[in-house]
Nucleic acid binder design. Structure first.
Lengths: 156, 156
DNA sequence: TAAAGTAGTTCGCAGTAGGAACGTTCGTCA
DNA sequence: TGACGAACGTTCCTACTGCGAACTACTTTA
């Protein structure tokens, strides 16, 4: 009854499609590949700063100012327990600090420390500039247009 | 000398920018957000199939036919040890099988089993169709425009 | 003021992912 | 042919990720 009884191989029939590159693909597939590229950029930049991609993501989300845990969880699509752990680890590196909210004494505000602001800013800039290299020399009009298209997807 | 000595909070100055939504952002930031959206779609679809996002990613990469471990590692940006573990876990669910290559007796070919092809195909289709919903009623011209930009980035 | 809801934490667990050390097999060069 | 270096994978170890459940503490509501 184990899985070893059924290991017939399937799917060879589709192998004739072009195997690599990014030629002749649909927008949806392109989006998946793009996401992968962005993740890789994050991973590379993170390594430069001795952070994990998620930690970098957290720092980048804080450069515009402190955010409450609940909002942060929504931003990062994390369950509260997962976020607790992430903030714990980054806090233990002295990059982030928790402060009790004045209005609601249950809630925390998560803010960058001085060191965290430094790391977060350069990491953020690093991600943006590397992505900029991939985007290349696109006219300002096109950039604006594409940004609008993407924004519409995001607001969906 | 511990980190607890320096927890001054910085970065408040930037807080005046608009905090939420996707308004007034650069193309690069839009790309990061978009990547996040794709990851979320993967997570949702994966949950429907009782898989993790990475396992889904693996299956989706195999629907076009068997792939060697080394190529798979390049595709998924994984170190060989990480890939070993991933394939182990998916294999133990009977969704994938390793076969020794004929030409090179060190190498494996990873292929979907019959069950794996089923799951992989529906997961793949699920991701594509959900992304299609986000793309929504984007004009054909605009779709093409976006696809072209992304393709150029990927070929970089 | 009691009940219900919200904000976070802790714990346990499975999965992710890198690095180092290792065994095999392959290709090449003397 | 035989030795050596390179390539393909695996195992072990470690830190991190992220979910769910149970819990504490504060807030809101009725």
């Amino acid at each position: 009854m184990s899985h070893t009884t059924d290991v017939e191989v399937g799917g060879e029939a589709r192998a004739q499609r072009m195997a690599a590159g990014a030629a002749g693909i649909s927008l949806e597939v392109a989006l998946v590949r793009l996401s992968h590229l962005v993740q890789r950029v994050f991973a590379e930049v993170s390594r430069d700063h001795d952070l994990t991609p998620q930690q970098t993501q957290l720092l980048c989300r804080l450069v515009d100012g402190p955010v409450g845990m609940a909002d942060l969880g929504r931003m990062l699509d994390l369950e509260k327990s997962g976020l607790s752990g992430l903030v714990d680890r980054v806090e233990s590196r002295g990059l982030v600090a928790r402060t009790r909210s004045d209005r609601d004494r249950r809630a925390y505000q998560v803010a960058l420390t001085t060191a965290g602001l430094q790391v977060g800013t350069t990491a953020h800039d690093g991600v943006i500039s590397r992505l900029g290299e991939y985007v290349g020399d696109t006219a300002q009009d096109d950039r604006q247009h594409l940004t609008t298209l993407i924004t519409r997807m995001l607001d969906n």
